[in-house]
Design a protein around this nucleic acid. Structure first.
Length: 118
DNA sequence: CCTGTGACGTCCC
DNA sequence: TGGGACGCCACAG
């Protein structure tokens, strides 16, 4: 196998994209979780893989946010807004601070942490 | 081959 | 609850 070769079926990026595709519509995951699921060496690599995506890649990249539940800023600049649009279209709710409640929309379900638990 | 950089996370204050 | 510092690694030049 050739993990260095992007064309390899079991390449790192392929695994990452596969993991992202598993995120259900209306739910979101984090770079860290995707990294684990895809057996990636680290979260940064996941971000790098996302940045390498093309439009119409069939990979729901918009469902990947950082561990704070916020849309990560990218170099390109544009896109964060588009990401938010796409997520809202899927029914994902953003707080006033522009954050997503991972306890409610996170995937896989991080914990059975009751949102209303005292 | 070596260096810089990035759509991040965790620890510590 | 918020902010700063360090760690980790693949990729491009």
């Amino acid at each position: 196998m050739s993990p260095r070769n992007p064309e390899s079926p079991d390449s790192l990026y392929k695994r990452i994209y596969a993991a992202v595709r598993r995120i259900p519509t209306g739910r979101v995951s984090t770079y860290g979780r995707i990294a684990k699921l895809a057996k990636a060496p680290g979260p940064r690599v996941v971000g790098y893989a996302m940045a390498a995506l093309r439009d119409g890649s069939s990979v729901p990249w918009q469902r990947v946010v950082n561990h704070k539940g916020e849309i990560s800023l990218r170099k390109a600049g544009d896109g964060q807004w588009r990401q938010r649009r796409l997520l809202e279209a899927e029914g994902v709710h953003f707080s006033l601070r522009g954050r997503i409640d991972l306890r409610a929309y996170g995937w896989p379900t991080p914990r059975k942490t009751p949102p209303n638990k005292a």
